Simulated assay, not measured.
Amino acid sequence: MPEIETKKPLDRRTVLKGAAWATPVVAAAAALPMASASTPACPTCIKAGLPLVGGLIAGAWTSQAIVAGNRGTIAMPAVFGIDATACGISWQNIFQPAFTFIITQATLTMSDNRTYNSSVGLGAGAGNISTIGPFAGGFVFNNVVLPNGIDAGGLIGYGTKPTKLTVTVKTTLQYGIGLSIECPMVLNWDLHGFATGAVAFGLGTVNFSGTATA
């Protein structure tokens, strides 16, 4: 008659020993989602703003281009900035009031769909939750194509003018204790304006003025 093997009951110390090895693995796996969830998402309440600067009506802008060889320089004044008023200060907003930003690119679009990048007005700045803060300076766009034309006594207006300003910004917001998050964003303004002046044989002067909407 064959011998029947009987299983020995598990020793209590063996069970505890196996549980001790398994516990850190389970704990580590459970901690991963918590660590990911603790990093906040970039806020969507920071938008393109039009602060009141130097007594000018928000968004009002003027510029004059001296044209030579059908090209001129258009300087946009410092009437643009970051609007963080929609963020508010509440228990839902975990970010500290002050934040910093870096402007990495500013692009002007003209009515002929040509685009130009500024090498002026880029760099670091600071803002605050619940306020509209202006950029530190204006933007300058060189070698803008301005064809021959005349404004017909101010009735029709010179044909080529700015229509859009796009600024790429990277904000850094602080939260918790010594924690921060970088948030890239693209801010857009539509430029509504009028151009007067004349360009003939590639030479002339064109004056731009108007308002902006974010």
Rank of each mutant, 00 (worst) to 15 (best):
V144K: 07
K164S: 01
I181G: 00
N117D: 10
I129L: 05
F194E: 02
I156S: 05
S130R: 05
G153R: 10
M185F: 03
T107S: 07
T131N: 10
A106G: 09
S118P: 04
Y175I: 06
G125V: 11
G133D: 15
G127M: 09
G202I: 15
G121M: 12
V169N: 07
Q105V: 03
A136N: 13
C183R: 01
L155S: 15
P134E: 15
G153Y: 09
L122H: 00
Q174P: 00
G178Q: 12
N113S: 07
I150M: 11
G176H: 05
G193I: 14
I129H: 00
N117K: 10
N148G: 08
C183Q: 01
I150R: 14
G176Y: 07
L108E: 10
G202T: 15
P184H: 10
F139N: 03
D190A: 13
V144R: 06
G193C: 12
G138T: 08
V144P: 10
D112L: 09
T196G: 15
T131V: 11
D151M: 11
M110T: 11
N142C: 01
G154Y: 11
I181D: 00
L108D: 08
D190Y: 07
T168H: 09
Q105P: 01
A136S: 14
N188I: 10
F135R: 04
H192G: 15
F201E: 13
G138W: 05
V167N: 13
Q105Y: 00
V186P: 00
G159W: 10
N148W: 05
L122Q: 01
W189E: 10
G197K: 04
V140A: 07
N128D: 04
N142D: 04
F135E: 10
L146H: 05
A136P: 07
I132V: 15
I129W: 00
S119R: 09
T163P: 03
F141W: 04
S119H: 09
G204L: 05
V140T: 14
T171F: 03
G178N: 13
Y116Q: 05
D151I: 13
L179A: 09
G123N: 12
T172E: 02
F139C: 04
F141D: 00
V120W: 07
I132Q: 07
V140K: 11
T107N: 03
I129V: 08
L146D: 06
G204Y: 05
P184R: 08
D190S: 14
S180P: 02
V144M: 09
A198G: 08
I132R: 05
G157E: 03
Y175R: 03
I177G: 02
L122I: 03
G204Q: 07
